[in-house]
Design a protein around this nucleic acid. Structure first.
Lengths: 206, 206
DNA sequence: ACTCATATTGAACATTGTTCAAATTAACGC
DNA sequence: GCGTTAATTTGAACAATGTTCAATATGAGT
């Protein structure tokens, strides 16, 4: 067993604090946006010094990247929960779930997609991989709907669909670009899928 | 006449410097990204003090916003140059021109779409309006192709198409998301339009 | 309880946006 | 031209914020 009693006190506190820092950072990003995230604010709210934040995460980007990592994970869980009996419904479900998640956590998603590293350090591979995995959830329904298409075609198509839906949603929720009301946005996404799936021959023309 | 001889010397210098500051800021954003833009670098390269940058643009956001404004203008000019004889070709042309422009000026476009103001000041209305005007260039061809659709439907559709294409291109060019080679991206955009326009009944099923 | 390795601290530093009193400069009337 | 004046320009000082590291405190092992 490896329960909490076995953990040295030192590590317990470390772990607890790590979680607290992340919780606070996430809350600030979610409510006030990435640009409002400040080391000192996080340290103060977590009841520790700025040095501790650095000990735990290396640099401030480390905090942001960890929050982003957890955002993709949460998104993946939500997307994986979409019912998969009917592949067409599944595709609509994935898009609508993405919309719902984006609407709930707009600033967290923006942090994921818009954050640029200091200098020109590369974005961590594992996060990229997680994003890819998330939209690979479209593969199975697409394979079922287009049995004769090869893997490359499926991969390309899922990437296209994901990117297109992402564009519609992210620009649609951008307040500054004359935000579309959420209900209307859902309709917009559905109509987009109607047209696109029809064009792919998946839905029949009405 | 209002030629350069009539301008007081003071204003001439002011105008020249304003242009120079913008040119330098644009060059830095374009080559090293928005995050690498620093007041002192700009001032030094323009041969003036940091104070002058502030006198001219109010604050540093002012410089960025002015560069962004000029980016939309340049984009609009390019898009407006797409031939309009055939509405279907025009739509493809608009998308491909957007792709070409985005590929050439990726960092400038990211600055336009991703820059967030300090605090929560609103993004200037005139820039939003310019972006709207840019993608309103899709209205005429869509009206010709869908004569029975009302204005609201056209506006919504053009917004959807623009957002979708923007998503495909911006994620496709994102190095960190496993960048798609430009040639492949063009194919991807074309295939997207094929399917979507077919689904809308604009292209006939092959 | 003592020792030692480790974690934590926060003051000091580095970088970068912002301000403003002082210096400079151009415009104008003579 | 020259002095006066209003406007502009300057850059040192300030403010905000990311980062470091020597000194301190703390938990683990005996």
């Amino acid at each position: 067993m490896n329960n909490v009693q076995d953990e040295p006190l030192r590590d317990q506190k470390k772990i607890r604090r790590r979680l607290q820092i992340l919780e606070i950072a996430r809350a600030i990003i979610a409510t006030k946006g990435l640009r409002s995230l400040k080391v000192r604010d996080v340290a103060e709210a977590a009841g520790c010094s700025v040095g501790s934040v650095y000990n735990e995460f290396g640099d401030f980007d480390g905090v942001i990247l960890t929050v982003n990592r957890e955002t993709v994970q949460a998104l993946t869980v939500r997307l994986a929960g979409v019912p998969s009996e009917d592949p067409v419904h599944q595709l609509y479900g994935l898009a609508e779930t993405y919309l719902a998640f984006f609407a709930e956590h707009a600033n967290l998603l923006r942090s994921l997609f818009e954050h640029r590293m200091e200098d020109d350090r590369p974005y961590p591979d594992d996060i990229l991989q997680m994003v890819m995995d998330a939209f690979a959830l479209m593969h199975p329904p697409l394979v079922r709907l287009l049995p004769e298409a090869d893997d490359v075609k499926i991969a390309l198509l899922s990437r296209t669909l994901f990117s297109a839906v992402h564009g519609i949603i992210s620009l649609g929720l951008e307040e500054r670009m004359v935000a579309v009301p959420p209900q209307m946005l859902r309709q917009q996404v559905d109509q987009f899928l109607d047209a696109h799936l029809t064009g792919l021959g998946i839905l029949s023309v009405r």
